[in-house]
């Protein structure tokens, strides 16, 4: 199908982009990689009056290390994230999750920031950034602000970004040394996750000292499985991990759709949390 008509600007700087967004008001939308937005527009499920193409704004791509924090430009493509040595060292979970996003052609265009700003709870990257306790840096007419990931995902397809704000950076505290794993469960390879579980684990002498577990598609936003995280602390064998994973669905509100019912999603969250944590902890 055919996307509806819109106006188009291609700003050359962040400031120009922000001004264009401000001028466009509610009608304006940022075009990053376009891999979520353009299919929605083709189905005429999104009708932005103005697209602000951030694709050529300099300084929004690539990675750098600031102290113990990995900074990834919002317009860095999934493909570039996957190939990046700093990401692999400091945010291995992000690389593991990114490898499961869509397919190679989509990963060449789709961007980390674009995916996060879309705030789809069925998408994989929000859960990764939540587990990594990242921060998102946005620039708007009122300046620059930093939003913690846990405050960024507000509701279904709704982020904390104001319509005139541009996401510029994703900041991830280095998780070097943590074990990580993403367990994604799909109907077919192309489908969204029925449930995904991102696990990040620190071990000391065979015992889990800290575990972070975040869930894809278990509610209107990506969620941390707080009860399971707490129960996992101190777990030293597969049996105790599996038992702790039994509380992974506590506090979640998964939807029902053609792929799965809420009960089954809750069941999967428990099973997959056990598997993800065991793999992350090297206890599998």
């Amino acid at each position: 199908m055919i996307p509806p008509a819109f106006d188009y600007v291609r700003p050359g700087t962040v400031e120009e982009a922000v001004r264009a967004l401000a001028d466009g008001g509610e009608e304006a939308k940022v075009l990053a990689g376009g891999q979520s937005l353009l299919p929605l527009m083709r189905l005429r499920m999104a009708f932005p009056g103005l697209l602000v193409d951030a694709g050529r704004v300099p300084g929004l791509r690539g990675t750098r290390l600031e102290g113990d924090t990995l900074v990834i430009g919002a317009l860095t493509t999934h493909h570039d994230v996957l190939a990046d040595a700093l990401v692999r060292r400091h945010a291995g979970l992000l690389a593991a999750v990114t490898a499961t996003v869509a397919d190679p052609a989509v990963r060449h265009r789709g961007t980390l920031g674009g995916s996060l700003a879309h705030a789809d709870p069925a998408a994989d990257l929000p859960a990764a950034v939540l587990a990594l306790e990242g921060e998102l840096v946005a620039v708007g007419p009122r300046g620059r602000r930093t939003i913690p990931a846990r405050a960024f995902f507000v509701d279904y397809l709704e982020s904390a970004l104001a319509p005139d704000e541009l996401l510029v950076d994703v900041r991830l505290p280095s998780s070097e040394g943590w074990g990580f794993h993403y367990e994604k469960f799909q109907r077919v390879a192309q489908a969204y996750a029925i449930v995904g579980v991102a696990a990040l684990v620190r071990r000391d002498g065979g015992r889990i000292t800290e575990a972070r577990v975040s869930l894809t598609n278990m509610g209107a936003t990506p969620l941390r499985a707080a009860a399971a995280e707490e129960a996992l602390s101190g777990a030293a064998d597969a049996h105790s991990v599996t038992r702790a994973a039994g509380s992974a669905a506590v506090g979640t509100r998964p939807a029902g759709d053609t792929s799965a019912s809420p009960e089954y999603r809750a069941h999967l969250a428990r099973v997959l949390t056990g598997r993800a944590v065991l793999a992350a902890a090297g206890m599998g």
């Binding site: 109907r187 077919v188 390879a189 192309q190 489908a191």
Partner: peptide
């Protein structure tokens, strides 16, 4: 996107 035609991986 909603009708699962299998891919090479499936």
């Amino acid at each position: 996107a909603d009708y699962p035609v299998p891919s090479a991986l499936d």
